[in-house]
Design a binder for these strands. Structure first.
Lengths: 157, 157
DNA sequence: ATCTATGCAAATAATTTGCACAATG
DNA sequence: CATTGTGCAAATTATTTGCATAGAT
């Protein structure tokens, strides 16, 4: 995502708050800016750290209070990486149907979209009497590193 | 899953413990029996309740210590339902590639398997240089109830 | 003035762990 | 008797909330 897009997403987030009758504050702006200045996934704690680099007055509570708002806006989506921590993915506005491939060796995450996957999802859902609204698809496996080079430089543990 | 199958799965779980050099205890047996006597999904707390109906001496700590073992055995899989609680799904031995359709109105969960989904998953993974090991596919949407009857008897809230 | 937002610290909820005792091989 | 397993209660971790204060309209 390029700089212009990020600016637009931040603007959309602020617009969402405005439409909801909520105020724009330095803290919320710092949190929004931090969240959408990266395409990496982050945890609440990680977001706090990033937001504080912009505005040190941001508190943990405000981060935890702002995250549900951004989820509600549709600009941010939750991401479960298997450990007990809630992660967030800021890339769903640009790629609304994307999925995750996660390497169990090195934790590398690849995002991908696939039209056939979407069609199949819709088809199966309807067949079972469901009207699909959203989906989570996470594939875990091994990336090429271990096979190609005998070892994975970023290997866990 | 019928009674015979359940017995076999419990036996497999005990065998797994044995192969690992771990002991069979009344508490572990009660937990195993409770976990595989239902095809419903459960939380650690729910499993504790069920296990205690079989053997009241089972403690919360033992449940939490046994769950990772059952996960490791492959007989039980984690299931994320979006609230912060870890749920477990005992149906993966019978249906190793099944997925979940979840109704956002009434929390109804439908499990389904689909060969095309598996093929597509493998195809996409390989194309991206991944060797897939497992996947999580969860589709959220609306089941027929609200549409057909104007209301859903089991509606949340 | 009134409403909204904030930081702090305390509260909560789910899970993990240390430890003394019990059960097993 | 040496090892493994257990319950209990305390510790840990992530998240939520009450409250007094600060800021915006």
């Amino acid at each position: 995502m390029n700089f212009e897009n990020r600016k637009q997403v931040c603007a959309a987030a602020r617009k969402f708050l405005e439409n909801k009758g909520l105020r724009q504050t330095p803290q919320r702006n710092a949190i929004i800016l931090a969240a959408f200045s990266t395409s990496d996934h982050f945890s609440a704690e990680g977001l706090l750290r990033m937001a504080r680099e912009i505005d040190f007055s941001v508190s943990r509570a405000t981060v935890y209070r702002t995250l549900p708002l951004l989820m509600e806006s549709g600009l941010l989506r939750g991401l479960d990486l298997g450990n007990g921590v809630q992660y967030y993915d800021p890339n769903f506005i640009e790629h609304p149907t994307h999925n995750h491939l996660i390497c169990v060796d090195c934790d590398k995450i690849i995002e991908f979209e696939d039209i056939n996957m979407e069609l199949l999802k819709n088809c199966i859902s309807r067949r079972l009497g469901f009207f699909p609204e959203s989906k989570v698809l996470r594939i875990e496996g091994h990336c090429e590193e271990l096979q190609l080079h005998g070892s994975c430089p970023k290997r866990r543990g």
